[in-house]
Every structure is written in structure tokens, then in C-alpha cells.
Design a protein around this nucleic acid. Structure first.
Length: 551
RNA sequence: GUCCCCAUCGUCUAGUCUGGCCUAGGACACCGCCCUUUCAAGGCGGCAACACGGGUUCAAAUCCCGUUGGGGACACCA
């Protein structure tokens, strides 16, 4: 193990991407993202994947997807599908990995157990790892004792088996043997992080990490290091939580005779309004943040209307699927995520894919955690949504109406026209495509219109004279010759003049009668969309309803 | 507890390496006012930050030291 002491890894400064254009042409840039098949894609993970993808694309390299399934072997295919789907939805294409394969496969760790085992044997043979028979309890006692002394834990190596005889003897006691790294206890590990700069860590602070379990399966650090080498990963770009894992991986890599990749550790994506890493397990806490809760609620309402069976665990704003099902634009989400920990300059906010690929560099990645801000995400979404034409937005909205049973699978051209009218009238109020469900009143039969109880009471039932005014207005309505917004405005204003009333004393009642709601887009637009017949029917029905329960 | 990392408006950030152009710029949010049939949108205006303390220097957001605060890691998880 003496070999390991004081090993240094010096990357020359010219390896920084912006200064290394020539270098990058010589070495093929290969980055990777290695999700566990958990069944969903975490928003923080996507940000990491995005930076890997951008770095590879910027340098004309390759982006690789590898599946870290050493631990759970069940239903990998099933749990993988939503992840691959998420990547495709976001437009993050991978050059090698599941379904596309490639020259450096297999891309599933579960398929490489033999390969890892050979690496373990190599480390064992080189004296860089050892067989160990300590029980978890014994180890824990040593850990506790070190902590009580306020010192860092250093394993006593008491149950280390130096040879086969010792191993047999310890095994005879009923102990299970694992393989541990024989970490150096003097000297320091040096490496350059492309985000953080030069790093120096004392080897003595490192543990004798387990790399292989008693059952022969291997652990993350070993598998990951071997894979990065096998897949010729040039730049390991990952979350900051891995920064302190780096020395042990360097130890493994060097022990195996590998050239080291470059490392870049990205700042964490943090909770809304906090610097704590965003986690999938703390949803209840995030829901106490009003903005996060509002975003979540919006999604839940849309999913509910679509008849999706969702739970907090499977459907929330920490999971990428949430955004697709709510009707977000992938470009908006990606653009927002890009700016979480990276900025080009002091003013550029919006990037096309081409622009972000062209301008991305690790040099401009920040070091401090960036908190996830649902409000700013919505602002990006709104911007991207407004950049689309009415018919594009209508196309995005249609599936939501279909899913809620408000629009036929094959809509008639009249249906389509109505949808476009509603989308146009809604304008910037339609932020995510699922928001179309806020305007369901334009897609339900007149008799099925639901009334907002509060608005109905305020504007019709309890507003003195409202019903009578509505009746007189409706009586004149069939005489309206032109049925467009400006004609209707003139018509209503004439009515107001004749009646000698303020416009507010009829228009609110009319809105509730026609749409069931106290708020909405322009009333004349609403009338045009509904048509004369519907308007009359709805006013009649509202008056009946108001009179029926009047004292 | 130990080790490592980090620190500019409420949030995302520019500026820090290469000290002066910074009475600190932009965006989102927020607060007024205007417009207005509601809700939005729009127009105009506004509030708001260099964590703290020492140095170095003619000059510090920028360099150095310390403090505080925050985060991450200390698994037979990944």
C-alpha cells in the first residue's frame, strides 16, 4: 500500500474547457449520467444529466446513459421505462446506453458482475484491498468509540485476514467476509475539480470502504470506477455529494492502473427557499412552501381531471413526470434548469438548445447550491408558452380536454375552432397546457354548467335586481344582429345607457350566468365563443336557478 | 463530533481569478399608481444584497486571516 501514499493527480490548467479547445479535439469527450432504476426521474438528477449532455454536445463528444442497478435487480425494465421516457421528453438524447447500446457496453451494471469481480481480485492481488471479517456491530463499536473521543474513525483492521488460513479461521467463527480497500493512512490525495479548483484531501481521513459484499456482489464505488474506465468517460460531472467520494474512487482507479477522468462537481439543487439539497423524501416539508404547494396543487387538479391515479409519492414537482403530465414545455423546464447553477453573463435568460450547447462551459458553473424556485419556473414556462401560436397551444391543450372527457378523440372542425377561440381569448392565462381545464365551461353542454357558489350568490342570488336586469337584457338579446365582440360591447353599453345603470351591475351577473364563474377572460369574447343560442339558454337556466332558491 | 465544500437583493444570478469603470447590473417575485367588466396582461414608478471582524493597499464585493452561518460526506445505499 505504500505505493498509494502521497499519490498525486495534477491536471494542468489548460484542461479547462474554454481554454482547451485543441485538447478536446484530441481526447474524445465522453460524459455519462448513471441513474438507478427507481421508476422516476428526479429534478435534481435531470439538472446533472443536462449539464453532462451539454458538455458532451458542446465538445462534439458523446453522452452515455448507464444504469446503476447493482442493488436492485427486480423489475429493472419496468422501472427504467419512465426514466428513458423522461429523457426523451426533455430531448436529452443519449449516444450509448439502454436501447441504443454502443461499443462500451453492457450499460447495465447488473450485467457486469464478473467484470467487477475481476477488478476486486486485481486489487486484492496488488495488496490494495483485503479480506475482512468484522461484523457490522464490531465496526459500529469502533466508530462510536472514535466519535466519543472526538476523533475521526480509523478501522483497527483487527479482523483483516492476511492469508487463506486466517480467512478460513475467521470464517469458521461464522463470520462473513467482505473485501475492503486498503487505504493509505499517510499523505494526501490531490486532484483538480473543474468547478472547484485544486483539492487536497488527507488519505488518513478515508475509510477502508467495502467494495465487495460477502455474497460476491460489488458496491457502487468499485462498479462506478470500473464502468467509467470501461466506457472511457473523460469527464465525470456529478452532484456535489460525490465530491468526498472522489479520493476513494481515485484510489481504486489508480490501483487498477486506469487513467483518471476529469472531475467536476456541480452544486446541489436545493429546496425552495433553502440551501438544503432537494430530496424526494421531504415532500411534506416542501408543501409548506406556498409557491411549491401552489404548483403541486395545480398539477394535482389537472391530474385529477384527467383521471390519473396519483399519490404524493408518485406525482409531485420533484419528479419530472409531473411536468409532462401537467402540460409544461420541455424547453421551458430545461431552460430553467440550465440557469440553476450556471449563467452565461449578466443578462441572457433564454436559450435555444443550440445556444445553450454553444455557450455552455463548466467554467461558468457556480459553487453554491441553487434553490429550486417554482415561481421562476412558471415564469419561464409562461414565456415559452406565449412564444407559440394559438394553434400550437391548442394542439397542446387538446389532449387534456380529451382526457377529461370534454373533447372527442377526433374533434370536429367546429370543436377545433372553439378550442382555438378559447386559447386565443385565454391568452397569457394559459400557462401550462393543462390550464385549459380552467375553461371547461366552454366545452360542457349548457345544462351541465357548474356554478361557483360564492360568485353565484354574490352576483345573482343576493344581488338586488340582478335577475330582473338579466331578464330584460336577455329579452333584447335575440335582436342582436351582429355577434362579434365589438358589436356585443356596443349592445351591452346601449342596454346600460337605457337602463341608466352602471355596467358593473349587469356584467358580473352575466358572466356568472354564462360561465358559472366570477372571473375569466373578456366577457364579449366569452359570448362570441358560446354563441347566441347558448348564451340565451345559459341566462335562462341561471335565472331559474337564482329564483328557485330565493326567499 | 470529524473531514470537505460554500457564502452578492426574498429567489436565480453578473461582477471575484486579472483590486479602481460598482453611489453593485439583470431576471423572477413583491409593493404603489395608471388602464379596466372580473382575473390576467400592459404602462409608469418603487423597495431590496456584497454574512461579520480584522488585516494588506492610495483604493477591497474582489486579495489574506479569523469568526459566524449554510451545505455535503463520514454505510456490506447509490
Amino acid at each position: 500500500m505504500g505505493r498509494a501514499c502521497g499519490w498525486t493527480h495534477n491536471l494542468c490548467a489548460t484542461m479547462y474547457p474554454s481554454r482547451s479547445h485543441e485538447d478536446s479535439k484530441m481526447i474524445e469527450v465522453r460524459t455519462r449520467f448513471a441513474p438507478s432504476p427507481t421508476g422516476y426521474l428526479h429534478i435534481g438528477g435531470v439538472r446533472t444529466a443536462l449539464f453532462n449532455w451539454l458538455f458532451a454536445r458542446h465538445h462534439g463528444g458523446r453522452f452515455i446513459l448507464r444504469i446503476d442497478d447493482t442493488d436492485r435487480r427486480r423489475n429493472v425494465q419496468e422501472a427504467l421505462a419512465p426514466i428513458l421516457h423522461g429523457f426523451r421528453w426533455l430531448g436529452l438524447d443519449w449516444d450509448e446506453g439502454p436501447e441504443v447500446e454502443g461499443p462500451a457496453g453492457p450499460y447495465f451494471q447488473s450485467a457486469k458482475l464478473e467484470r467487477y469481480n475481476r477488478a476486486v481480485q486485481q486489487l486484492l492481488a496488488a495488496g490494495l484491498a483485503y479480506r475482512d471479517f468484522a461484523t457490522p456491530d464490531e465496526l459500529q463499536m469502533e466508530r462510536d468509540a472514535a466519535r466519543a473521543r472526538g476523533e475521526r474513525f480509523v478501522y483497527s483492521r483487527r479482523w483483516l485476514a492476511g492469508d487463506e488460513d486466517a480467512a478460513a479461521r475467521l470464517a469458521a467463527e461464522g463470520r462473513a467476509g467482505v473485501v475492503r480497500l486498503n487505504m493509505p493512512r499517510t499523505g494526501e490525495c490531490r486532484f483538480t475539480d473543474l468547478v472547484r479548483g485544486p483539492m487536497v484531501v488527507e488519505w488518513a481521513g478515508e475509510q477502508d470502504h467495502v467494495i465487495q459484499r460477502a455474497d460476491g456482489t460489488c458496491l457502487y464505488h468499485l462498479a462506478s470506477t470500473v464502468d467509467d474506465h470501461d466506457m472511457r468517460i473523460s469527464h465525470v460531472i456529478r452532484a456535489e455529494e460525490h465530491l468526498s467520494n472522489t479520493p476513494r474512487q481515485i484510489f481504486i482507479a489508480q490501483g487498477l492502473g486506469y487513467d483518471l477522468p476529469h472531475y467536476a462537481h456541480l452544486p446541489a439543487v436545493a429546496e425552495p427557499g433553502s440551501r438544503t439539497k432537494l430530496s424526494k423524501r421531504k415532500l411534506q416539508k416542501y408543501l409548506k412552501n406556498p409557491e411549491f404547494a401552489r404548483l403541486n396543487h395545480r398539477g394535482q387538479v389537472i391530474a385529477g381531471a384527467m383521471g390519473l391515479a396519483t399519490t404524493d409519492e408518485t406525482f409531485n414537482p420533484v419528479i419530472v413526470d409531473f411536468y409532462e403530465r401537467t402540460g409544461f414545455l420541455p424547453d421551458a423546464l430545461v431552460n430553467y434548469l440550465l440557469l440553476l447553477g450556471w449563467a452565461l453573463d449578466d443578462h441572457t435568460e433564454f436559450f435555444s438548445r443550440e445556444q445553450m450547447v454553444a455557450s455552455f462551459s463548466l467554467e461558468r458553473v457556480n459553487k453554491a447550491p441553487a434553490s429550486f424556485d417554482p415561481v421562476k419556473l412558471m415564469a419561464f414556462q409562461s414565456h415559452y408558452m406565449q412564444s407559440l401560436s394559438v394553434s400550437q397551444r391548442a394542439d397542446l391543450a387538446a389532449p387534456f380536454l380529451e382526457g377529461a372527457g370534454l373533447l372527442a378523440k377526433n374533434p370536429t372542425s367546429a370543436d377545433k375552432t372553439r378550442l382555438e377561440q378559447v386559447v386565443a381569448a385565454a391568452g397569457e392565462r394559459l400557462v401550462v397546457a393543462g390550464d385549459i381545464l380552467d375553461y371547461r365551461e366552454f366545452f360542457v353542454p349548457d345544462d351541465d354548467l357548474a356554478y361557483d357558489a360564492k360568485a353565484f350568490d354574490k352576483r345573482l342570488r343576493n344581488a338586488p335586481g340582478a335577475v330582473d336586469r338579466l331578464a330584460r337584457f336577455a329579452a333584447g338579446l335575440p335582436g342582436a344582429r351582429e355577434w362579434d365582440a365589438s358589436a356585443l360591447e356596443k349592445f351591452l353599453k346601449e342596454f346600460v345607457a337605457v337602463e341608466e345603470i352602471k355596467i358593473g351591475s349587469i356584467i358580473h351577473a352575466l358572466r356568472v350566468a354564462l360561465t358559472g364563474k366570477g372571473v375569466g377572460f373578456g366577457l364579449y369574447d366569452a359570448m362570441v365563443i358560446l354563441g347566441k343560442e347558448s348564451c340565451l339558454a345559459r341566462v335562462e337556466r341561471a335565472m331559474d336557478e337564482a329564483r328557485r332558491e330565493m326567499p
